[in-house]
């Protein structure tokens, strides 16, 4: 049973961490795309679109990510769609992160004083011109720090994909713990690897925020 040296444990964890990174990137890209769409709908001012986005955010922020994963994984299959653990995890994390990113980005856009809208209107700019030239450039700046900050939540969220059998860092950890039974060491290493992935993002987010505050 003790065919695992410390190096074997670390090597396997590092290999599995690749999938944590890949899944995080996919989830972030997916979440950002859907989130952007939803943010546009949210600030469009059309009652129906705004209501839909609100409901969407309410649903995905008000239910556990774990349940969303289960529902996507088993639910889509019942509808006849073949879903792998990969696809299910990526989709669930996309839905989850888009809800939070929409909320963050809407806040950023709304943080731009209303007066600017009115001033731009007076200058005869159209809705899209105002968005494109006045609001978005400023909102984007405000959005960077919290977006980077939220990416930490995505990386941590991928850990739950282990429960539907996706072999990433956490799943590899439980498998290795089962094979070696050294939980203190194995989960300690797993935690350390996550920390190494997340901490730089946290620090970057904070630095960006500080820089922005000084600039203002």
């Amino acid at each position: 049973m003790s065919v695992f040296s410390d190096w074997d444990i670390l090597r396997n964890l590092l290999l599995a961490a690749r999938w944590t990174v890949v899944l995080s990137l996919i989830a972030f890209a997916g979440g950002a795309t859907v989130g952007l769409l939803l943010t546009m709908m949210q600030v469009s001012g059309r009652t129906l679109l705004v209501r839909f986005t609100r409901l969407y955010i309410e649903l995905f922020q008000g239910t556990p990510l774990l349940m969303q994963l289960f529902l996507v994984f088993f639910g889509l299959s019942l509808m006849g769609l073949e879903v792998s653990a990969w696809f299910a995890a990526a989709l669930a994390l996309t839905l989850f992160s888009s809800a939070y990113l929409t909320e963050i980005w809407r806040g950023c856009i709304e943080s731009i004083p209303r007066g600017q809208w009115e001033a731009s209107r007076c200058l005869g700019l159209s809705y899209f011109e105002i968005m494109r030239h006045i609001i978005l450039p400023q909102a984007l700046k405000v959005a960077i720090a919290p977006t980077v900050g939220f990416s930490v939540q995505i990386v941590k969220g991928t850990a739950l994909a282990s429960i539907i059998g996706f072999v990433e860092l956490t799943k590899a950890g439980t498998m290795l713990n089962n094979a070696t039974f050294e939980p203190f060491k194995v989960f300690g290493m797993v935690a350390l690897l996550y920390f190494l992935l997340c901490y730089p993002l946290s620090v970057a987010s904070r630095k960006l925020e500080r820089k922005l505050n000084v600039a203002r």
């Binding site: 941590k156 989960f187 997340c198």
Partner: peptide
């Protein structure tokens, strides 16, 4: 604060439940 905020909840949980008994 940094340790907790930068590691997943489930890993903390496993560490506490399985890891701590070994010490």
């Amino acid at each position: 604060v940094e340790l907790i905020r930068n590691t997943p909840f489930i890993v903390q949980l496993f560490f506490i439940f399985f890891g701590l008994p070994t010490i």
